[in-house]
Amino acid sequence: MPAGVFKETYGEEIAIFRYPIHYAGAALGLLFALMLPILVGPYYMLLAVSFLIFLVGTVGLNITVGLAGLISLAHAALMGMGAYVTAFLAEKGVNILVAIPVAGLSAAALAFILALPSFRLKGYYLAMASLAAQFIIEYIFALIDPDQYVPIPDEAKYLGGIYLGRGLPLYYTTLAITIVSILTAVNLGRSILGRAMKAVRDNDVAAEVVGINVYYVKAIAFTIGGFYAGLAGGLYALYSSGIGWEGFTLEGSIEYLGMVLIGGPGRIVWGSFLGVLLVRTGWTLLESTLADLIVSYVAAALKYLILGGMIAGFIIFEPEGLIAVLRRFKEYLRLWPYSY
Protein backbone atom coordinates (compact mmCIF):
# COMPACT_ATOMS: atom_id res chain seq x y z
CA MET A 1 0.00 0.00 0.00
CA PRO A 2 1.65 3.25 -1.09
CA ALA A 3 1.68 6.07 1.48
CA GLY A 4 -0.32 8.49 -0.64
CA VAL A 5 -1.71 8.65 -4.12
CA PHE A 6 0.77 8.29 -6.92
CA LYS A 7 0.04 8.85 -10.56
CA GLU A 8 1.65 6.62 -13.15
CA THR A 9 0.59 8.33 -16.37
CA TYR A 10 0.24 11.92 -17.48
CA GLY A 11 -3.40 11.23 -18.26
CA GLU A 12 -4.03 10.39 -14.63
CA GLU A 13 -2.26 13.54 -13.55
CA ILE A 14 -4.58 15.86 -15.49
CA ALA A 15 -7.77 13.89 -15.07
CA ILE A 16 -10.72 15.74 -13.58
CA PHE A 17 -11.13 13.07 -10.94
CA ARG A 18 -7.66 12.51 -9.60
CA TYR A 19 -8.36 11.42 -6.05
CA PRO A 20 -11.19 9.48 -4.47
CA ILE A 21 -12.21 12.69 -2.73
CA HIS A 22 -12.95 14.18 -6.13
CA TYR A 23 -15.53 11.49 -6.83
CA ALA A 24 -17.05 11.93 -3.42
CA GLY A 25 -16.97 15.72 -3.69
CA ALA A 26 -18.56 15.75 -7.14
CA ALA A 27 -21.27 13.31 -6.13
CA LEU A 28 -22.07 15.15 -2.92
CA GLY A 29 -21.92 18.53 -4.61
CA LEU A 30 -24.25 17.38 -7.34
CA LEU A 31 -26.61 15.85 -4.85
CA PHE A 32 -26.59 19.02 -2.80
CA ALA A 33 -27.24 21.17 -5.85
CA LEU A 34 -30.12 18.95 -6.87
CA MET A 35 -31.65 18.81 -3.43
CA LEU A 36 -31.13 22.49 -2.68
CA PRO A 37 -34.77 23.48 -3.36
CA ILE A 38 -35.92 20.96 -0.75
CA LEU A 39 -33.25 21.91 1.73
CA VAL A 40 -33.61 25.67 1.71
CA GLY A 41 -37.02 26.66 0.41
CA PRO A 42 -38.09 28.87 -2.46
CA TYR A 43 -36.35 32.13 -1.59
CA TYR A 44 -32.86 30.72 -1.21
CA MET A 45 -33.48 28.64 -4.29
CA LEU A 46 -34.04 31.82 -6.30
CA LEU A 47 -31.04 33.42 -4.64
CA ALA A 48 -29.14 30.36 -5.81
CA VAL A 49 -30.42 30.96 -9.34
CA SER A 50 -29.05 34.47 -9.25
CA PHE A 51 -25.83 33.04 -7.80
CA LEU A 52 -25.55 30.52 -10.64
CA ILE A 53 -26.16 33.19 -13.29
CA PHE A 54 -23.31 35.29 -11.97
CA LEU A 55 -21.20 32.18 -11.50
CA VAL A 56 -21.43 31.47 -15.23
CA GLY A 57 -20.42 35.05 -15.97
CA THR A 58 -17.56 34.94 -13.48
CA VAL A 59 -16.25 31.65 -14.84
CA GLY A 60 -16.04 33.40 -18.20
CA LEU A 61 -14.11 36.34 -16.80
CA ASN A 62 -11.90 33.96 -14.90
CA ILE A 63 -10.88 32.39 -18.21
CA THR A 64 -10.03 35.81 -19.64
CA VAL A 65 -8.36 37.20 -16.53
CA GLY A 66 -7.24 34.16 -14.60
CA LEU A 67 -6.12 31.81 -17.35
CA ALA A 68 -4.95 34.23 -20.01
CA GLY A 69 -4.03 37.15 -17.76
CA LEU A 70 -6.01 39.72 -19.75
CA ILE A 71 -7.68 42.24 -17.46
CA SER A 72 -11.14 43.15 -18.71
CA LEU A 73 -13.42 45.82 -17.34
CA ALA A 74 -16.12 45.28 -19.95
CA HIS A 75 -17.61 42.02 -18.73
CA ALA A 76 -20.93 43.49 -17.60
CA ALA A 77 -21.35 45.04 -21.03
CA LEU A 78 -20.86 41.63 -22.60
CA MET A 79 -23.43 40.21 -20.24
CA GLY A 80 -25.76 43.01 -21.30
CA MET A 81 -25.16 42.08 -24.93
CA GLY A 82 -26.36 38.56 -24.15
CA ALA A 83 -29.39 39.83 -22.27
CA TYR A 84 -30.40 42.23 -25.04
CA VAL A 85 -29.96 39.61 -27.75
CA THR A 86 -32.13 37.23 -25.74
CA ALA A 87 -34.76 39.90 -25.24
CA PHE A 88 -34.71 40.71 -28.95
CA LEU A 89 -35.07 37.08 -30.00
CA ALA A 90 -37.74 36.35 -27.40
CA GLU A 91 -39.68 39.31 -28.72
CA LYS A 92 -39.46 37.77 -32.19
CA GLY A 93 -40.97 34.56 -30.83
CA VAL A 94 -37.79 32.50 -30.53
CA ASN A 95 -37.79 30.07 -27.60
CA ILE A 96 -35.54 31.21 -24.81
CA LEU A 97 -33.59 27.96 -24.74
CA VAL A 98 -32.60 28.67 -28.34
CA ALA A 99 -32.04 32.34 -27.61
CA ILE A 100 -29.62 31.78 -24.72
CA PRO A 101 -26.91 30.00 -26.76
CA VAL A 102 -27.34 32.57 -29.52
CA ALA A 103 -26.88 35.24 -26.87
CA GLY A 104 -23.66 33.55 -25.86
CA LEU A 105 -22.44 33.48 -29.43
CA SER A 106 -23.27 37.11 -30.10
CA ALA A 107 -21.54 38.24 -26.91
CA ALA A 108 -18.59 36.10 -28.00
CA ALA A 109 -18.54 37.92 -31.32
CA LEU A 110 -18.54 41.25 -29.51
CA ALA A 111 -15.81 40.02 -27.21
CA PHE A 112 -13.73 39.07 -30.23
CA ILE A 113 -13.86 42.69 -31.34
CA LEU A 114 -12.91 43.80 -27.83
CA ALA A 115 -9.95 41.43 -28.02
CA LEU A 116 -8.38 43.46 -30.83
CA PRO A 117 -6.72 45.98 -28.47
CA SER A 118 -5.23 43.08 -26.51
CA PHE A 119 -3.04 42.24 -29.50
CA ARG A 120 -0.99 45.29 -28.74
CA LEU A 121 -1.74 45.99 -25.10
CA LYS A 122 -1.16 44.47 -21.70
CA GLY A 123 -1.99 45.11 -18.07
CA TYR A 124 -2.90 48.68 -17.28
CA TYR A 125 -3.33 49.62 -20.95
CA LEU A 126 -5.63 46.73 -21.64
CA ALA A 127 -7.72 47.50 -18.58
CA MET A 128 -8.09 50.99 -19.95
CA ALA A 129 -9.12 49.79 -23.40
CA SER A 130 -11.77 47.55 -21.92
CA LEU A 131 -12.95 50.37 -19.69
CA ALA A 132 -13.42 52.48 -22.80
CA ALA A 133 -15.25 49.62 -24.48
CA GLN A 134 -17.54 49.31 -21.46
CA PHE A 135 -18.50 52.98 -21.67
CA ILE A 136 -19.04 52.80 -25.42
CA ILE A 137 -21.26 49.73 -25.20
CA GLU A 138 -23.17 51.29 -22.31
CA TYR A 139 -23.85 54.27 -24.54
CA ILE A 140 -25.09 52.05 -27.36
CA PHE A 141 -27.38 50.25 -24.92
CA ALA A 142 -28.79 53.60 -23.85
CA LEU A 143 -29.51 54.42 -27.49
CA ILE A 144 -31.27 51.17 -28.29
CA ASP A 145 -33.09 50.97 -24.96
CA PRO A 146 -34.25 54.52 -24.18
CA ASP A 147 -36.97 53.30 -21.81
CA GLN A 148 -34.42 51.42 -19.70
CA TYR A 149 -36.80 48.51 -19.69
CA VAL A 150 -37.21 45.72 -22.23
CA PRO A 151 -39.74 43.13 -21.11
CA ILE A 152 -39.02 39.49 -21.86
CA PRO A 153 -42.26 37.96 -23.15
CA ASP A 154 -43.41 35.00 -21.10
CA GLU A 155 -44.43 33.08 -24.22
CA ALA A 156 -40.78 32.51 -25.04
CA LYS A 157 -40.09 30.84 -21.71
CA TYR A 158 -42.06 27.63 -22.22
CA LEU A 159 -40.66 24.19 -22.90
CA GLY A 160 -43.23 21.51 -23.66
CA GLY A 161 -45.86 23.30 -21.66
CA ILE A 162 -43.66 23.91 -18.62
CA TYR A 163 -43.00 27.54 -17.72
CA LEU A 164 -39.27 27.88 -17.19
CA GLY A 165 -39.20 31.37 -15.74
CA ARG A 166 -40.25 30.51 -12.22
CA GLY A 167 -39.70 28.09 -9.35
CA LEU A 168 -38.19 24.67 -9.80
CA PRO A 169 -38.06 24.64 -13.62
CA LEU A 170 -36.09 27.90 -13.46
CA TYR A 171 -33.69 26.46 -10.92
CA TYR A 172 -33.08 23.20 -12.75
CA THR A 173 -32.75 24.88 -16.15
CA THR A 174 -30.20 27.31 -14.76
CA LEU A 175 -28.42 24.52 -12.90
CA ALA A 176 -28.19 22.35 -16.01
CA ILE A 177 -26.80 25.17 -18.15
CA THR A 178 -24.39 26.13 -15.37
CA ILE A 179 -23.09 22.59 -14.93
CA VAL A 180 -22.57 22.14 -18.64
CA SER A 181 -20.72 25.45 -18.94
CA ILE A 182 -18.59 24.74 -15.90
CA LEU A 183 -17.60 21.29 -17.13
CA THR A 184 -16.67 22.83 -20.44
CA ALA A 185 -14.59 25.44 -18.65
CA VAL A 186 -12.83 22.80 -16.57
CA ASN A 187 -11.95 20.86 -19.67
CA LEU A 188 -10.78 24.01 -21.36
CA GLY A 189 -8.32 24.58 -18.55
CA ARG A 190 -6.86 21.10 -19.13
CA SER A 191 -6.70 21.35 -22.89
CA ILE A 192 -3.83 22.50 -25.11
CA LEU A 193 -5.61 25.82 -25.44
CA GLY A 194 -5.90 26.25 -21.68
CA ARG A 195 -2.21 25.54 -21.19
CA ALA A 196 -1.37 27.92 -24.01
CA MET A 197 -3.39 30.61 -22.21
CA LYS A 198 -1.47 30.05 -19.00
CA ALA A 199 1.77 30.26 -20.95
CA VAL A 200 0.71 33.58 -22.45
CA ARG A 201 -0.28 34.82 -19.02
CA ASP A 202 2.98 33.85 -17.37
CA ASN A 203 5.32 34.99 -20.10
CA ASP A 204 4.00 35.98 -23.47
CA VAL A 205 7.42 36.32 -25.09
CA ALA A 206 8.42 32.82 -24.02
CA ALA A 207 5.05 31.53 -25.16
CA GLU A 208 5.63 32.96 -28.59
CA VAL A 209 9.09 31.45 -28.71
CA VAL A 210 7.76 27.95 -28.05
CA GLY A 211 5.40 28.34 -30.96
CA ILE A 212 2.16 29.50 -29.38
CA ASN A 213 0.22 31.93 -31.53
CA VAL A 214 -0.18 34.61 -28.90
CA TYR A 215 -2.69 36.71 -30.86
CA TYR A 216 -4.87 33.70 -31.48
CA VAL A 217 -4.78 32.61 -27.85
CA LYS A 218 -5.61 36.07 -26.57
CA ALA A 219 -8.49 36.47 -29.00
CA ILE A 220 -9.85 33.06 -28.04
CA ALA A 221 -9.55 33.84 -24.31
CA PHE A 222 -11.59 37.00 -24.76
CA THR A 223 -14.09 35.29 -27.02
CA ILE A 224 -14.73 32.41 -24.66
CA GLY A 225 -15.02 34.79 -21.73
CA GLY A 226 -17.53 36.77 -23.75
CA PHE A 227 -19.47 33.63 -24.58
CA TYR A 228 -19.93 32.89 -20.89
CA ALA A 229 -20.90 36.49 -20.18
CA GLY A 230 -23.49 36.23 -22.95
CA LEU A 231 -24.83 33.00 -21.48
CA ALA A 232 -25.12 34.70 -18.11
CA GLY A 233 -26.98 37.56 -19.76
CA GLY A 234 -29.34 35.11 -21.45
CA LEU A 235 -29.97 33.30 -18.18
CA TYR A 236 -30.59 36.64 -16.53
CA ALA A 237 -33.26 37.35 -19.13
CA LEU A 238 -34.84 34.00 -18.30
CA TYR A 239 -34.76 34.73 -14.57
CA SER A 240 -36.02 38.28 -14.85
CA SER A 241 -39.24 39.65 -16.28
CA GLY A 242 -37.38 42.45 -18.03
CA ILE A 243 -33.94 43.99 -18.45
CA GLY A 244 -32.57 47.52 -18.51
CA TRP A 245 -29.13 48.89 -19.21
CA GLU A 246 -28.49 50.13 -15.68
CA GLY A 247 -27.95 46.46 -14.78
CA PHE A 248 -24.88 46.25 -17.03
CA THR A 249 -22.83 49.30 -16.10
CA LEU A 250 -19.19 49.76 -15.14
CA GLU A 251 -20.03 49.02 -11.50
CA GLY A 252 -21.12 45.58 -12.65
CA SER A 253 -17.85 45.06 -14.49
CA ILE A 254 -15.82 46.11 -11.49
CA GLU A 255 -17.84 43.73 -9.34
CA TYR A 256 -17.13 40.92 -11.79
CA LEU A 257 -13.42 41.64 -11.72
CA GLY A 258 -13.58 41.73 -7.93
CA MET A 259 -15.24 38.32 -7.82
CA VAL A 260 -12.52 36.81 -9.96
CA LEU A 261 -9.63 38.40 -8.10
CA ILE A 262 -11.02 37.61 -4.70
CA GLY A 263 -12.07 34.04 -5.32
CA GLY A 264 -8.81 33.18 -7.00
CA PRO A 265 -7.81 34.07 -10.55
CA GLY A 266 -6.98 30.99 -12.57
CA ARG A 267 -8.98 28.67 -10.31
CA ILE A 268 -11.81 28.61 -12.75
CA VAL A 269 -14.51 26.76 -10.89
CA TRP A 270 -13.88 27.05 -7.19
CA GLY A 271 -12.28 30.46 -7.38
CA SER A 272 -15.27 31.85 -9.23
CA PHE A 273 -17.63 29.99 -6.93
CA LEU A 274 -16.18 31.55 -3.80
CA GLY A 275 -15.85 34.96 -5.40
CA VAL A 276 -19.51 35.15 -6.33
CA LEU A 277 -20.55 33.68 -3.01
CA LEU A 278 -18.59 36.27 -1.06
CA VAL A 279 -19.04 39.43 -3.10
CA ARG A 280 -22.47 39.18 -4.68
CA THR A 281 -24.51 36.75 -2.68
CA GLY A 282 -22.57 37.80 0.40
CA TRP A 283 -23.74 41.39 0.00
CA THR A 284 -27.35 40.27 -0.29
CA LEU A 285 -27.12 37.96 2.70
CA LEU A 286 -25.27 40.58 4.75
CA GLU A 287 -28.01 43.10 4.04
CA SER A 288 -30.69 40.54 4.94
CA THR A 289 -28.96 39.64 8.18
CA LEU A 290 -27.84 43.08 9.28
CA ALA A 291 -31.04 44.93 8.36
CA ASP A 292 -32.99 42.68 10.69
CA LEU A 293 -30.47 42.98 13.49
CA ILE A 294 -29.43 46.59 13.87
CA VAL A 295 -30.38 50.17 13.18
CA SER A 296 -30.54 50.84 9.50
CA TYR A 297 -27.66 53.24 8.98
CA VAL A 298 -25.25 51.16 11.01
CA ALA A 299 -26.25 48.12 8.96
CA ALA A 300 -25.79 50.12 5.77
CA ALA A 301 -22.24 51.11 6.64
CA LEU A 302 -21.38 47.81 8.24
CA LYS A 303 -22.05 45.68 5.20
CA TYR A 304 -19.53 47.68 3.20
CA LEU A 305 -16.97 47.51 6.00
CA ILE A 306 -17.38 43.76 6.50
CA LEU A 307 -17.40 42.93 2.80
CA GLY A 308 -14.44 45.16 1.97
CA GLY A 309 -12.51 44.03 5.01
CA MET A 310 -13.03 40.40 4.13
CA ILE A 311 -11.96 40.96 0.54
CA ALA A 312 -8.79 42.83 1.46
CA GLY A 313 -8.02 40.47 4.32
CA PHE A 314 -8.29 37.35 2.23
CA ILE A 315 -6.13 38.76 -0.51
CA ILE A 316 -3.41 39.81 1.88
CA PHE A 317 -3.30 36.62 3.83
CA GLU A 318 -4.24 34.41 0.90
CA PRO A 319 -3.24 36.17 -2.35
CA GLU A 320 -4.08 33.09 -4.36
CA GLY A 321 -7.66 33.55 -3.34
CA LEU A 322 -10.00 31.88 -0.97
CA ILE A 323 -9.57 28.65 -2.82
CA ALA A 324 -6.05 28.19 -1.46
CA VAL A 325 -7.45 27.95 2.04
CA LEU A 326 -9.77 25.18 0.99
CA ARG A 327 -7.01 23.40 -0.90
CA ARG A 328 -4.79 23.33 2.16
CA PHE A 329 -7.68 22.06 4.21
CA LYS A 330 -8.31 19.34 1.66
CA GLU A 331 -4.64 18.33 1.70
CA TYR A 332 -4.72 18.25 5.45
CA LEU A 333 -7.69 15.89 5.38
CA ARG A 334 -6.09 13.73 2.75
CA LEU A 335 -2.87 13.29 4.68
CA TRP A 336 -4.47 13.06 8.08
CA PRO A 337 -3.29 11.98 10.61
CA TYR A 338 0.18 12.66 9.21
CA SER A 339 1.44 16.13 8.52
CA TYR A 340 2.97 15.25 5.14
Binding site: L261, A301, L305, G308, I311, I315, I316, P319
Partner: peptide, 25 residues
Protein backbone atom coordinates in the same frame (compact mmCIF):
# COMPACT_ATOMS: atom_id res chain seq x y z
CA UNK B 1 1.61 42.36 -1.29
CA UNK B 2 5.04 43.39 -2.59
CA UNK B 3 6.32 40.69 -4.90
CA UNK B 4 2.85 39.26 -5.45
CA UNK B 5 1.29 39.51 -8.90
CA UNK B 6 -0.28 42.92 -9.58
CA UNK B 7 -3.79 41.45 -9.70
CA UNK B 8 -3.56 40.75 -5.96
CA UNK B 9 -3.16 44.45 -5.21
CA UNK B 10 -5.93 45.32 -7.67
CA UNK B 11 -8.25 42.97 -5.80
CA UNK B 12 -7.16 44.29 -2.42
CA UNK B 13 -7.82 47.88 -3.45
CA UNK B 14 -11.26 46.79 -4.61
CA UNK B 15 -11.81 45.59 -1.06
CA UNK B 16 -10.57 48.94 0.21
CA UNK B 17 -13.05 50.60 -2.15
CA UNK B 18 -15.90 49.01 -0.23
CA UNK B 19 -14.38 49.82 3.16
CA UNK B 20 -13.85 53.49 2.29
CA UNK B 21 -17.39 53.66 0.96
CA UNK B 22 -18.62 52.38 4.30
CA UNK B 23 -16.48 54.90 6.18
CA UNK B 24 -17.77 57.67 3.93
CA UNK B 25 -21.31 56.66 4.71
Amino acid sequence: LIGKPPVALIGATLGAFYVIRGVTF
